[in-house]
Amino acid sequence: MSVTLRVAGTASGPELELRCWRLDDVPALLDAHRDPGLRSRVRQPLTTPAEARRWIDGNRQAWAAGRSFSFAVCQPAADDNRLVACVVLKNVLPGRLGAEVGYWTAAAARGRGVAPRALTAVTDWAFTRFAATGLSHLELLHQVDNPASCRVAEKTGYDFVEVLPARPPFPLDGHRHVRRFTPR
Rank of each mutant, 00 (worst) to 15 (best):
F181A: 14
R39H: 06
H33T: 04
E154K: 09
R151H: 12
V7D: 08
S12E: 15
R82D: 08
Q75I: 03
L93Y: 10
N146E: 03
A65N: 12
G95I: 03
P14S: 12
V161D: 10
G134T: 07
A153Y: 04
G58S: 14
A126G: 10
Q75D: 15
N81Q: 10
V114E: 05
V87H: 00
P116A: 05
H33G: 07
T182K: 03
R43Q: 13
V144H: 03
R179F: 01
T47S: 13
L172T: 10
L23Q: 14
L140P: 09
V178S: 03
D24P: 07
W125R: 05
V92R: 14
Y158S: 03
R184M: 05
G134V: 09
L164P: 00
L172W: 04
R184I: 04
P36A: 11
V84H: 00
A8H: 07
L5N: 07
A99E: 06
S70K: 07
W55H: 13
E15L: 11
V144T: 15
A121P: 00
P116W: 01
H137A: 11
L164H: 02
A32N: 02
A64K: 08
L138E: 01
Q61G: 06
W21L: 15
I56W: 01
G9E: 15
T123F: 00
D159P: 01
A132D: 15
R22M: 08
K155F: 08
L16C: 01
H142Q: 11
R117P: 07
W104C: 01
E139Y: 02
G37F: 00
R179D: 05
F130V: 02
R151E: 13
D159V: 14
M1N: 07
P76Q: 01
